[in-house]
Design a protein around this nucleic acid. Structure first.
Length: 478
RNA sequence: GGGGCUGUGGGCUAGUCUGGUAUGCUCCGGGGUUCGGGACUCCGUGACCUGAGUUCAAAUCUCAGCAGCCCCA
């Protein structure tokens, strides 16, 4: 395995292939064949995301993948913003009948859902209306694609909420931040939740907020984003309700898009090491893998013990598997499961059976412990918690080490070049300065101001020297 | 968006400059010995990205396409 620190790009590509997460040989740009190990992990991640959304009053729904061009174009800014990103379906059937109207392969589902919302939402009693769907979306990305980071097809969840008042919709943004916080915590991924600057909003939104984390190469990665849509779409799609006084009003809307596919990419990158993946126990398809060690004559005893351990763990809802493949040696299996990122390995051999003990090995630290068989469940639970918190701690440490502060352009450029991450600066708020900062630093974007933790600027804009209006963070993003 | 590099059995790779017989490792299938940190050995199957061109002859040269990787914007 390549070295993650010195050669992140190649390490990442290698781990995707070696850990059998995805196969890039499908030969359509930006599309992947997803393999069981990553899908199992992402399904667990989806569970956490969906549970959190449902806890907060969202109902599941499924909408079509095809959107008629006329729907797609209803909100002008949205249509304009996404126009370069759409795959169009134009014909079908054996005689290639052209459709009367082009159909967009959804790049996001606002325009699919809101055409229905206008029929479904009639009165204040229908509100708030909160639904979500987990689905694939397609975007004709021009930038270079990377597995789980930027694809022309990706897997996400999108929540769409409709309210009576502006205040309720604005409050939803905070709820979405809370959801992001709870979800990313389960994945042990640190982040800052930013309010994006005006020039970097979701097309069609009034304001955009997004969680940014930092990858091992110092690049910033956008994770869930949430958008206050105001009445832009409700006006375009005629989503109206009759309020308690009998007046007809346009609704207020938000949408929220946590992309499990991309979060998985960040998780692989952030937690992995030179042996491969390290999965947080909260989402690992297996928390423990049992490696039986046997020689001729004692096979049966060892296998019986291994299987009884598996049964015991499963009875306590701890996912476990016995790797009983006869064709591989124990050493080979150690490496195999380390590559896959299973948090805990349990070794059972004849010597252990004699001593009534088991050997546990932690994936994150490599630490080995001989434990009494009677303490197994207790120790596994303890190790899981420790691994979970250790991964979070490690990630947090790296994240904090990559947040810095600059007072002038030279310093900003130096920090971005040398360590990347997020650099705090003061900014006048003009798009011109943002563009200049990006040009001067070769790619440094203004990611925004942390929501709920806005700081008062004390000095001048780092670029133009005029009075600063905001304290913002700059980073080079994926 | 721009530039560079690459495409050879399932995976990795030699061969490409200088056109002619495709190398090795690994995986896979079978046999035997092994098994507490990627075992050993014997046998076997299996490949030149696609299309066009040049040529007696193309993995090799030319052009186009597709895909991937890297760097820059």
């Amino acid at each position: 395995m390549k070295n993650k620190k010195s050669n992140f790009s190649e390490w990442y590509t290698e781990v995707i292939q070696e850990a059998e997460l995805a196969d890039i040989r499908y030969n359509v740009k930006g599309f992947l064949a997803h393999m069981p190990w990553s899908v199992r992990t992402m399904k667990n991640m989806y569970c956490i995301v969906e549970r959190e959304l449902e806890k907060k009053g969202h109902e599941p729904a499924w909408f079509p993948a095809l959107i008629p061009e006329s729907y797609f174009k209803k909100e002008a800014e949205h249509a304009e913003g996404f126009s370069a990103d759409v795959f169009w379906v134009t014909e079908g059937g054996s005689d290639n009948t052209k459709f009367s109207e082009r159909l967009a392969l959804r790049p996001t589902s606002e325009t699919a859902m809101y055409s229905m919302f206008s029929l479904w939402i009639r009165t204040w009693r229908d509100l708030p209306y909160k639904i979500y769907q987990s689905c694939q979306v397609w975007r004709f990305e021009g930038k270079s694609t990377r597995p789980f980071i930027r694809g022309r097809e990706f897997y996400w969840t999108e929540a769409h909420d409709v309210f009576e008042t502006k205040e309720e919709a604005e409050k939803q943004v905070e709820e979405d931040r809370d959801t992001t916080c709870n979800v990313l915590k389960e994945f042990a991924i640190p982040f800052i939740f930013f309010k994006r600057p005006e020039h970097d909003k979701f097309k069609g939104a009034v304001s955009t907020y997004a969680a940014d984390s930092i990858m091992p190469d110092g690049k910033v990665i956008q994770l869930p984003s949430t958008h206050f849509l105001g009445q832009n779409f409700s006006k375009a799609f005629n989503i109206k309700f009759v309020d308690k006084k009998g007046d007809e009003k346009h609704a207020w809307q938000t949408c929220y898009g946590p992309a499990v596919w991309r979060i998985f990419g960040a998780l692989v990158a952030i937690h992995g090491d030179d042996k491969g993946l390290i999965l947080p126990p909260s989402i690992a398809p297996l928390v423990a893998v049992i490696i039986p060690i046997y020689f001729k004559g004692s096979d049966q005893k060892v296998m019986e013990k291994a299987n009884s351990i598996k049964k015991l763990l499963e009875s306590r809802c701890i996912s476990a598997k016995v790797d009983d493949r006869a064709e591989h040696t124990p050493g080979w299996k150690y490496n195999y499961w380390e590559l896959k990122g299973v948090p805990i390995r349990i070794e059972v051999g004849p010597k252990d059976i004699e001593k009534n003990q088991l050997v546990l090995v932690r994936r994150d630290t490599g630490e080995k412990a001989a434990i009494k068989e009677s303490e197994l469940v207790e120790k596994i639970t303890k190790f899981s918690e420790e691994i979970q918190s250790n991964l979070a701690k490690r990630a947090e440490k790296f994240f904090k080490e990559h947040i810095s502060e600059a007072n002038d352009m030279a310093q900003l450029k130096k920090l971005l070049d040398e360590q990347g991450g997020l650099v705090k600066v003061e900014w006048c708020g003009s798009e011109e300065c943002a563009d200049n900062i990006k040009a001067d630093t070769v790619g440094g974007d203004i990611r925004g101001t942390p929501l709920g933790k806005e700081e008062k600027p004390k000095g001048k804009c780092i670029r133009c020297g005029k009075k600063a209006e905001q304290v913002v963070y700059v980073g080079k993003a994926y």
